[in-house]
C-alpha cells in the first residue's frame, strides 16, 4: 500500500452510504482556504501587493507585527508576501508531480487492467519492483542520478507516487470491467476499446479526480521535504519548502521564518484531503 492508497481507501469507505456526513464545517473552511490559495497562486498581487524579492536589510528579522503579519526574514523581506507569492510554485510543483504520477499511473494501470493476463502479470511485477523503493527512496535515487533542482524534484515526486496510482486504477478498472453494464456492452458486441472509452473510462475518471485532489497535498509535502533537504527548489525562490529551509537556520531566534511557510504546507495538505473526501462522498451520493 502507498500513502495514497490509504487515503483513497479511506475516502472510499467514508463515502459509503449510511455514514453520517461530518465534514460540514470543515468542508466550508477547506473551500474558503482553497479559494484563497487559488487566488494567491493566480494573482498573488491581489493578496499581497509587495515585492517578494524586495530586500530591506534594516528591517531584517522583525517578529510578526501589524506591518509584517508573518514577520520578516534575514534580508528584511516580508514573509507573508513571500508565502503568498510562493503558493504558485508549491501548487504548480504539486500539480505537476501529481500529473506525472497520475499520468504514469493511468498508463500502467490501464495496461494492466485491460490487456489481459500476460500484460497484467508483467505490469504487476514492475509495480512490485517500484514498490520496493518505498516513499522518498525512489525520489532520492532519481535525484542522485539527475542532480538536484526543482524540475528533478518534481519528476522524482511524480515517479515515486506513480505505482500507488497505477495499482488503484488497475483495481478500479477490474471492478468496473466486471460490472453489469460493461458485460451488457460486451454481449452487444462492442470492441474492447469502445467499451474502454464509452463505459469504463467515464466511470474511472471521477474517482481519479478525487485521487488527484488527495495526491496533490501529498506531492506538495514531499516536494517541500526535498527542498528542505536541499535537493529541490533553492532560496530565494519563495517555494514553501525552500522558505522553510531558509528559516531553519534562524529557528532559534526567528521562529516565524519557518513556522508560517510550514503552516501553509499543512493547511494546503489538509484542504486537499478534506476537499478530496468531500467530492468523493458527494459523487457517491449523487
Amino acid at each position: 500500500m502507498s500513502e495514497l492508497e490509504v487515503q483513497a481507501d479511506f475516502a472510499a469507505r467514508a463515502g459509503q452510504p449510511g455514514r453520517p456526513r461530518r465534514l460540514g464545517v470543515a468542508e466550508t473552511a477547506a473551500g474558503v482556504l482553497a479559494l484563497f490559495l487559488l487566488v494567491s497562486a493566480v494573482a498573488p498581487h491581489l493578496v499581497a501587493p509587495g515585492d517578494p524579492l524586495g530586500i530591506d536589510p534594516l528591517s531584517a528579522f522583525a517578529p510578526p507585527t501589524r506591518a509584517h503579519v508573518f514577520g520578516t526574514d534575514e534580508s528584511g523581506r516580508d514573509i507573508f508576501t513571500r508565502v503568498v507569492h510562493g503558493t504558485q510554485y508549491s501548487l504548480v510543483i504539486g500539480a505537476a508531480a501529481t500529473a506525472i504520477g497520475l499520468g504514469l499511473g493511468i498508463v500502467l494501470g490501464t495496461l494492466a487492467g485491460m490487456l489481459g493476463r500476460v500484460v497484467d502479470f508483467t505490469v504487476n511485477r514492475f509495480l512490485e519492483v517500484l514498490f520496493a523503493f518505498p516513499g522518498l527512496l525512489l525520489a532520492l535515487l532519481f535525484i542522485v542520478i539527475f542532480g538536484p533542482g526543482v524540475a528533478t524534484a518534481t519528476i522524482a515526486v511524480g515517479l515515486s507516487t506513480a505505482p500507488g496510482y497505477a495499482r488503484i486504477i488497475r483495481a478500479q478498472l477490474i471492478t468496473v470491467r466486471s460490472a453489469a453494464f460493461v458485460e451488457a456492452a460486451t454481449v452487444l458486441g462492442r470492441t474492447r476499446w469502445q467499451i474502454l472509452l464509452r463505459h469504463i473510462l467515464p466511470n474511472t475518471l471521477a474517482p481519479l479526480f478525487v485521487l488527484a485532489t488527495l495526491g496533490i497535498g501529498q506531492a506538495i509535502v514531499w516536494a517541500a521535504t526535498l527542498s528542505y533537504l536541499g535537493l529541490g527548489a533553492e532560496p530565494p525562490t519563495a517555494e514553501w519548502g525552500a522558505l522553510l529551509s531558509a528559516g531553519r537556520t534562524y529557528i532559534t531566534s526567528a521562529w516565524w521564518m519557518s513556522f508560517f511557510p510550514g503552516l501553509f504546507i499543512v493547511l494546503t495538505a489538509v484542504t486537499a484531503t478534506v476537499l478530496g473526501r468531500s467530492i468523493d462522498s458527494r459523487m457517491r451520493h449523487a
Binding site: 522553510l244 510550514g262 504546507i265 499543512v266
Partner: peptide, 9 residues
C-alpha cells in the same frame, strides 16, 4: 498532513 521536518523543528 504534518511534514516531518516542520514537526521536528
Amino acid at each position: 498532513a504534518l511534514p516531518h521536518f516542520w514537526l521536528a523543528t
